[in-house]
């Protein structure tokens, strides 16, 4: 992707449209959270393309919010000015599949066949350090499709998603492989709410009523704990306050 030199012009010619993105998944997915966020996924892909080789040199101990990014790193998704929420949903899996999770084990054991590669030491610690042994359980689900809704620029999203190999954790070992994806235009914006049911975490202060309240992060990066607020989680029945933009 070509990033323009004149920063003021970047993103001005973007035309947002209501989109539905459907991924077809080939292999089981590993997850540590019941949802995947599209905005953080696109932000990751965009940053990877923007920084290229320097992407891996970014500080890992600092929280980089999107307002601290360079202007070119604006993701092609509409951001609501009043609330600061991106117009994009969390993942929607096949209904029956999510009720039947299984466990996958990620294991590492020290093997003595590698001993000759190491310096002569009296003891090898397997409870900490680089040779730490583990047997981690991780949730495995097998959805056929994963669906997202967003308001964004179709061509750029298409370009970014073409570089995505899989969804979920441990993609490099063949989990959550994407067979193909489709991007459809749709009439209505379902990125925040669909049929009265929330599609992403929305802070309670923007809502008139909600069936559930959960403290959650509502802006990317979702792992950061400094922006946790009481929100209506995905799949809650909600009604917006008058004046909050929602179509």
């Amino acid at each position: 992707m070509d990033f323009p030199k004149q920063l003021d012009e970047f993103g001005k010619d973007w035309v947002f449209e209501n989109l539905e993105i459907i991924f077809t998944i080939g292999t089981p997915m590993l997850l540590t959270h019941p949802f995947i966020a599209l905005d953080s996924l696109l932000l990751h892909l965009y940053a990877k393309e923007f920084y290229q080789k320097n992407f891996n040199l970014l500080p890992s101990n600092k929280i980089l919010r999107d307002d601290l990014f360079p202007p070119q790193l604006k993701i092609p998704i509409k951001k609501d000015v009043a609330t600061g929420l991106y117009h994009c949903s969390f993942s929607i899996f096949d209904e029956k599949i999510t009720l039947l999770p299984r466990f996958h084990h990620i294991r590492r054991r020290f093997e003595d066949r590698y001993l000759h590669l190491m310096k002569k030491v009296k003891k090898i610690g397997i409870n900490k350090g680089t040779l730490k042994n583990y047997d981690m359980k991780i949730v495995q689900i097998s959805p056929k499709t994963v669906r997202f809704y967003c308001v964004g620029v179709k061509t750029i999203i298409d370009h970014l998603l073409s570089k995505l190999e899989g969804l979920g954790k441990k993609v490099n070992t063949g989990n959550g492989t994407i067979l193909n994806y489709e991007i459809h235009s749709c009439k209505k914006d379902h990125s925040w709410v669909k049929d009265g049911i929330s599609q992403r975490p929305i802070p309670v202060r923007y809502l008139m009523s909600t069936s559930r309240q959960v403290p959650m992060t509502w802006v990317p990066p979702y792992w950061a704990r400094d922006m946790i607020e009481v929100c209506a989680p995905p799949n809650a029945n909600i009604t917006f306050q008058p004046g909050v933009l929602c179509t």
Binding site: H105, I106, M136, K137, I138, V214, P215, R225
Partner: peptide, 20 residues
Amino acid sequence: FLGGPNLDKFFLYEMRNQYV
């Protein structure tokens, strides 16, 4: 190392940030 928090974060995500 046993993956306990991985399961809790998935199944009990609503309780994850109770103390923040």
